[in-house]
C-alpha cells in the first residue's frame, strides 16, 4: 500500500542525504519526495510517498525518527488531507493540433506557460490522478519533455500532533 508521510526536518546541510540514504540503504521504496522550507526557515518539510506493508511502514517511521534532524513525522494516509502535484509538459503542437490541445488545457484547468514554434509548454496542478489523466490525454500529440514535482500534502483542519516538540500545530494545518 502507498503511504503519504509529512516529515518536518531541521534545515541542515545534509538532511536530504540522510533521509534519501536511509531509504536506499534499508531498501524502502520511495515513490516521490518533495521538500522545501516552511514558514520557519530553520525547518523544512518533506512529503514522502512510500510503498510498503504495515511492517515496512512501521520501520520507515521508526528509522526516520532515529535521524536526529527529523523533528516530526505524520503518516496522513488515512486522514483527510489535501494533496497537490504540479506538472509541466512540453508537447508537440502543430497548427492542426494546437486548438485541440488548448481545449484539453482548459478542461484540466491548466495554463500555457510558454509557446514555441512547434511546441506548447503547459502547467497543470492537481492530485496525482488528474495529472496522470492529463498526461495520458497529451501523449498522442507527442510529449517532448515532462517534469513533475512529486506530491505535496497537508492535513485538512486542525489535528493534534503525535508528539509535542516545540513546533506549533499551525505547521500542520
Amino acid at each position: 500500500m502507498r503511504h503519504t508521510l509529512t516529515v518536518l526536518v531541521e534545515n541542515t546541510p545534509g538532511v536530504l542525504a540522510r533521509v534519501a540514504g536511509l531509504f536506499s540503504r534499508r531498501g524502502f521504496n520511495i515513490d516521490s519526495l518533495a521538500v522545501g522550507r516552511t514558514d520557519n526557515p530553520a525547518v523544512s518539510r518533506m512529503t514522502i510517498v512510500v510503498e510498503g506493508d504495515d511492517q515496512v511502514l512501521e520501520q520507515v517511521n521508526k528509522q526516520l525518527h532515529k535521524l536526529i534532524d527529523v523533528i516530526k513525522i505524520n503518516d496522513i494516509t488515512k486522514d483527510a488531507y489535501v494533496d497537490r502535484e504540479l506538472v509541466m509538459i512540453k508537447v508537440y503542437a502543430e497548427a492542426a493540433t494546437r486548438s485541440e490541445i488548448m481545449q484539453l488545457v482548459d478542461i484540466f484547468r491548466g495554463r500555457i506557460v510558454d509557446v514555441g514554434r512547434k511546441t506548447l509548454t503547459i502547467e497543470v496542478t492537481g492530485d496525482e490522478g488528474k495529472i496522470d489523466a492529463f498526461e495520458n490525454c497529451l501523449r498522442p500529440f507527442g510529449i517532448k519533455e515532462l517534469v513533475r514535482t512529486g506530491k505535496i500534502a497537508m492535513l485538512r483542519g486542525l489535528k493534534p500532533g503525535t508528539k509535542n516538540n516545540g513546533y506549533k500545530e499551525e505547521d500542520m494545518v
Partner: peptide
C-alpha cells in the same frame, strides 16, 4: 567523511 560515514554514525556535524 560526513557523507562516507552517514550510514555508520548516529549523527554528524560539519
Amino acid at each position: 567523511i560526513m557523507g562516507i560515514t552517514m550510514p555508520i554514525t548516529k549523527h554528524s556535524f560539519l
